[in-house]
Simulated assay, not measured.
Amino acid sequence: MKSPIIAPIALLALLTLAACQDETPPPEQSESRPALTVELARPETANWVRSLSANGNVAAWQEAVIGAEVAGYRIAEVLVDVGAQVRKGQVLARIDASTMASEVAEARAAVAELEASVAEARANAKRAEELQARGFYSQQMKTQYQTAEQGAAARLAAARARLQAAELRLGRTNVLAPDDGVISGRAATVGSLTQAGQELFRLIRGGRLEWRAEVPSADLAALRPGMPAQLTGPGGETVPGRVRSVAPSVNPESRNGIVYVDLDPSPAVRAGMFARGEFQLGEATALTVPASALVLRDGFTYLFRLEGEDRVALTKVTPGRRQGERVEIIEGLPEGAAIVAAGAGFLADNDRVRLAPGKTTAAGPTP
């Protein structure tokens, strides 16, 4: 049989052991080490040019269609080809003029013959008037001679008109450029017969090209004639231009309007090209940050803002224009905030960071 003293002794031993365990000091919690050494920057305010981007086709300002003014004659010579720079009045092609030259000669002979007839009829009429005054001719005879004179004069006028028409056709055997410009198309071939309404050449008047930019209807009100624009060529070349006019209507399907931009002469763009460009709407103040500070996650743009001494907060922002290595922040960034300028892609919200020596902090430069 156990002694009744053993139970209290055992209970006392257990209590003493528990008290000793409670007095054991807790292990020190290790402080979390900084996630990353970062560089900070502050937003900067700058005057940036506001721009509006658009796409569109490059086309000729005006294209002149050049054809033969006489039909049924053979082309004898073609003097220019596609791409040729021509001046107003320059001969582009010649049409065989041998047939028309003979027509002119025949018309001149007919005029000479009728001029002689008119001279004879005029002399007869004058003599009849004198004889009628002396009583040798009747009034009827005098009238007959005067009528013959008038008929001969009318026939002479008709012959002179035919001569003028023949000379005009002969002069049109040279196909001339109606204006200065660049030949953009050629259908004329030596030996072919000219046809009424047939196109022989196509000319870009003045060599002028225009950019027909498609702009959303909501942005058309911001554009005015005379505003500067800049087109980007396929090789990255920039071509300056200026707004000539804004279309008074929009496409009911795309809701876009056409803005016509006169382009400066440049070999970088050609008619028929599709190009992208920008309209310069003037300067406006922009709050900018380094492009390296922005982080794209889940389709949104963020940056890390310093809170306190060594913590960062993930902040959602709305970016705007971009120039070089800086990006405009439209909204979401408090004034005077210090942001992580480099290394933001490796951070998470509320991470602890170490500031790079000599870099900007929320309180100013670090020692």
Score class of each variant (00 low, 15 high):
L12Y: 02
Q21M: 11
P26G: 14
P26Y: 14
P27Q: 10
E28H: 13
Q29N: 09
S30R: 15
A35Q: 11
V38L: 02
W48C: 00
L52C: 01
A54I: 02
N55D: 10
N55E: 11
N57D: 12
V65Q: 13
G67R: 02
E69D: 15
V70H: 10
A71F: 05
A71S: 14
Y73M: 03
R74S: 04
I75A: 03
A76D: 15
L79Q: 02
A109M: 09
A112C: 05
A116M: 05
K126P: 02
R134K: 13
F136S: 04
K142A: 08
Q144L: 04
Y145N: 04
Q146T: 08
E149V: 04
R162L: 05
A165D: 09
G171W: 03
V175G: 14
A177E: 07
D179H: 07
D180Y: 14
G181V: 06
Q198T: 02
F201K: 09
F201P: 04
L203P: 07
L209D: 06
V215L: 13
P216T: 08
A218F: 11
G241W: 11
R242H: 03
V243S: 00
S245W: 11
S249Q: 15
N251L: 06
P252W: 01
L263N: 12
S266C: 05
A268Q: 01
R270E: 11
A271G: 12
E283L: 06
S292A: 08
A293Q: 02
T301W: 12
F304L: 14
E309C: 12
V312H: 14
P319E: 07
Q323E: 15
I329G: 00
A337V: 00
V340N: 11
A344Y: 03
R354D: 13
R354H: 05
G358F: 05
